[in-house]
Amino acid sequence: MNTISRYLKIYTMVVSQYVKSRMQYRADFIVGMFGMLASNLANVVILWLVFTNIPSIKGWDYNELLFFYGFFILALTPQQLFFDMFWDLGHLLQTGDFIRYYFRPINMMFYFISWRLDIKGLTQFLVGIALTIYASIQIGINWTLPMALLLFINWVSASLIMIALLVGSMSSAFWIINSVSLTGTITSIRDFGRYPLDIFNKTFRIIFTFAAPIGFLAYYPTQIALRPASEIPAAAWFSPIIGFVMFFLAYQIWRKGINSYSGTGS
């Protein structure tokens, strides 16, 4: 308990410095919020445009796709809010500035991420909540307490996958220069995780379930709310744990990386 409160205190201290320094650029703050809103809404508009022409995609209707998308961006929120520092990892390694994160007697990943809080993630969170609630009313989901609880745990797990994808791919910066390109590519593939897996052929369904589990970002975790219990695919029951496994793996890559980094000598 003591450790947690100590970490919380450190986090608030470091992050409040960051927030203060960003407050100088108020336009940046507003424009960033607006950009996030625009890109979230654009994805809704795209879905809407498609569905003005067809009733359903592989049996899933407009509202169900909205529900997937809402859940998807909710799962993305923790990564967006708290792990934004990772996009700079490659640059910090090359300039040698990364060395400064070694000199604190606390968990290094924790100290590293506490340097930034990406506030525009809050916009994403609000859009995600609004979409999920709107879609669940339209679909007429019958909420029960166990279902809501399981969905919440699945959301934690899906968020950990999002975090793991960023941490794992950006940590490649310890060995390769182009980690940002690699992460960008993984991000654009990841974005297909907001569609039902049924749209893909068997090969990709297997890959997206077992190898690159983007099926667990929105599709599998939400099955409990969208289908009767008898029709839920077996893989969906693994939703609560996949995120923890993925995060553990990504954390190992990061640990290997920080132990092998030798600085730039300056």
């Binding site: 650029y25 336009a27 940046d28 507003i30 424009v31 960033g32 919020m33 607006f34 950009g35 996030m36 625009a38 890109s39 654009a42 508009v45 795209i46 445009l49 525009k120």
Partner: peptide, 19 residues
């Protein structure tokens, strides 16, 4: 030049163009 930030406006431009 005015906002000293780029992510937001560039993203907004991209999504408007794409749609």
């Amino acid at each position: 030049f005015r906002t000293n930030s780029i992510w937001g406006i560039s993203t907004t431009k991209d999504v408007i163009i794409m749609v």
